[in-house]
Simulated scan of single mutants.
Amino acid sequence: MRTTSRPRGTAASAGRADGIAALRARAAKARARNAGRVADDRAHRLLDAYLAAAERHGRPAREVIADLARGEAAWQIGMALHDQTMAAPPDILRNAACGEGCAFCCILSGGDGGTTTEAEATRLHAALAGRAGEPDGRNWHPEACPALDPDTRACRAYDARPIICRSFLSTDASACEANAQGGTEPGSGLLGSHLDYLAVLALIRETLKGMTRVPTYSLAQIAASAVGGADLATSLDTARHPSRVLDAACRDMARAGAAGRGRRL
């Protein structure tokens, strides 16, 4: 049975004219757990701007809550940050060593398998469902993302790839290969804007606590289920994370940034 995110419980304000105003008030009191004070402050500004825009456009509060819960709002905010960075790329982006076929960042050896939202998981599943039964990235490496073509190592769901995939960057391809084998070489990691995205998602979860669930899912498991022929409902049930995974992702990104390590760029 599919366990999707739907408003429930105490979401009484969602049906009233002041529903979004009430959401903004709830968000102002919430905190992005484990993201750190600076990222938490940015997440508050980003989420409030999103909610303020929804309020100006007269969007129904129930519709906004649904977009928050399934990760569509975090996706829009994260993509806006990504596009802003790409519009005026810093030197680290202009000097990136990334290229098609250099897929060491697609070896998903972390315990979470890559953290994605329901909206991202749904898009990824749709992009891969037609490839059920085909050889996949695990034919190249046992922990590679199943979205990869095993021969070319190109992503077969490139346009539908989650924000975490869009956030990886390297200035040294050899460092990527070493890190994929368990190393800690500098020069490869995640853009700092990824912490902002995670912090927004964590803030949304705290804002909606008691109203609806805000689940996350394993990218690796969603992709594996899709190419294995499982339907979306089954894939989501199989890939759903325990709630602690998002907290851990925020903590790890915040620690990497504070320590100045290469995992956050």
Score class of each variant (00 low, 15 high):
Ala88His: 15
Ala53Leu: 08
Ala160His: 07
Pro89Asn: 12
Ala69Tyr: 08
Ala180Met: 10
Arg255Ile: 11
Gly183Met: 07
Cys165Glu: 02
Leu81Trp: 09
Leu93Gln: 06
Leu124His: 00
Ala126Arg: 13
Ala88Glu: 14
Trp75Gln: 14
Tyr197Ser: 10
Ser109Trp: 13
Arg16Met: 10
Ala249His: 14
Arg26Glu: 13
Pro7Asn: 01
Asp231Glu: 03
Gly189Val: 00
Leu232Ile: 00
Ala132Cys: 03
Tyr197Arg: 10
Ala32Asp: 07
Ser218Asp: 09
Arg205Gly: 12
Ala14Arg: 07
Cys155Thr: 02
Leu246Ile: 13
Arg8Met: 13
Ser13Trp: 10
Cys106Glu: 07
Leu93Asp: 08
Thr117Trp: 02
Arg138Tyr: 05
Leu198Gly: 11
Ser243His: 15
Asp247Thr: 12
Leu246Tyr: 09
Arg244Asp: 14
Glu72Tyr: 08
Ala178Trp: 03
Tyr158Pro: 05
Arg244Met: 12
Gln84Phe: 10
Cys105Thr: 12
Arg26Leu: 15
Ser193Asn: 11
Leu81Ile: 09
Pro150Asn: 05
Ala21Met: 06
Leu195Glu: 09
Leu148Trp: 02
Arg2Leu: 15
Pro60Ala: 12
Gly19His: 05
Met1Asp: 14
Ala119Pro: 00
Asn95Thr: 12
Lys29Tyr: 03
Asp247Gln: 13
Pro186Ile: 01
Asp136Glu: 01
Asn95Asp: 14
Ser109Ile: 13
Gly58His: 02
Val245Ile: 15
Arg263Leu: 10
Arg70Trp: 12
Ala43Met: 07
Arg264Phe: 11
Ala12Val: 08
Ile163Met: 15
Pro7Leu: 08
Ala27His: 05
Thr234Asp: 01
Glu55Gly: 09
Asn34Ile: 00
Arg138Gln: 04
Ala54Ser: 14
Cys155Gln: 04
Pro7Glu: 02
Phe104Asp: 11
Ala239Gly: 04
Arg59Ile: 06
Gly182Asp: 04
Gly114Lys: 04
Cys106Val: 08
Ala97Glu: 06
Thr207Cys: 02
Arg37Phe: 05
Asp159Phe: 09
Ala80Gln: 12
